[in-house]
Design a protein around this nucleic acid. Sequence first.
DNA 1: ATACTGATTGACTGGTCAGTCAGTCACGCG
DNA 2: CGCGTGACTGACTGACCAGTCAATCAGTAT
Lengths: 196, 196
Amino acid sequence: MSAAADKRRLILDAAVRVFARQGFHTCRVSDIADEAGVAYGLVYHYFQSKEAILDTVFLERWNLMLATIAEAQASEAAPREQLRRIASFIVDSYRRDPDVMKVIVVEVTRAANTFGRTHVQRIMQAYEGIAEIVTQAQQAGVFRREVDALFAAQAFYGLVEQVLTQWIFSGEEIPEREFEHVKVEIVEMICGGLGG
Amino acid sequence: MSAAADKRRLILDAAVRVFARQGFHTCRVSDIADEAGVAYGLVYHYFQSKEAILDTVFLERWNLMLATIAEAQASEAAPREQLRRIASFIVDSYRRDPDVMKVIVVEVTRAANTFGRTHVQRIMQAYEGIAEIVTQAQQAGVFRREVDALFAAQAFYGLVEQVLTQWIFSGEEIPEREFEHVKVEIVEMICGGLGG
DNA sequence: ATACTGATTGACTGGTCAGTCAGTCACGCG
DNA sequence: CGCGTGACTGACTGACCAGTCAATCAGTAT
């Protein structure tokens, strides 16, 4: 990796920390430069604008997510296992790098007027991938056919994001066992329901 | 209602439209004044700050929500029916006033660094109320005991917000039957699960 | 009519900040 | 060595905008 690529990454990582700490709208580009220990102008040497930094952060992780969904879908695993792998990817993403997930969940996937709007297409692709897993399972007779597949995908993804949101708001360190526990609970909840 | 209260409401309603259209961070106070057909300074006669307007918008609706949850909980209705009433309140809120719900979902409930932080307490109260319904149902033997009640509440609320988010991003008018259909599907999904 | 109160106006101020740019520095190559 | 290239610097500019305030207006009481 070249020194130039290192610097770019340095700025990107610093930006993630600053976005997570202060929020995109309330932080200054100078905060990012300071956090990275770099001159103000260098940020603009590597990125077109403040927004371009956020775009990069989002896309890097979201593309991994889409790849994970595609892999799960292509695998021979049981539907429950396919869903578990996706939940696992997101939970592990948070475990390894909570700041990146915080930025995505807080600044992008709900930002209907700003960044979300620019990335709707890609965000929707995730739901559609999950919905396809559900559809296949329904055709195989493993999942009930009464529930609309895209609706089920929304329930799945909505639950996962809600769990992350909870962790983010709590501000506390999440114990290791909680992560593994939640992965199981997510699939259990979506597949098994509450009964009644 | 006094003329003064009318003007306050006028500004509040205009603010909701502007926040929904442009987003809180990217709109100017002058946009709100213009939308309300009122002088810039008058906004500050009725509200301490731009943030205070958003706080008011959020609290007015959220308090109704907490009341709805408390009512459902206190009622003698079956757990499924209690959940249906809560889902119904939120869906109907969107039907009657999509802009208010858009502002709440986009600007508040995920804003971990800004407004969300100020209102965590009240936001959590909603989850806790829903969780209590689940707990009671579990004790009555109607819902399975394996699922953690607060986790189930997150699944329920997460699904509802995800549906709203979908509607918000779509930007389209939602057909009437969709609203009624979704109310049923939400409860069906949470209680029945996907099977497998 | 006079005085008082609160609503209403919009020009103005003070501060903020994204993005620019003219220049310096480091390094490899002929 | 001297030259070119690209990394790097940070002061500066131009625009923007939240919140203030002095002035005016409308209604009501005395």
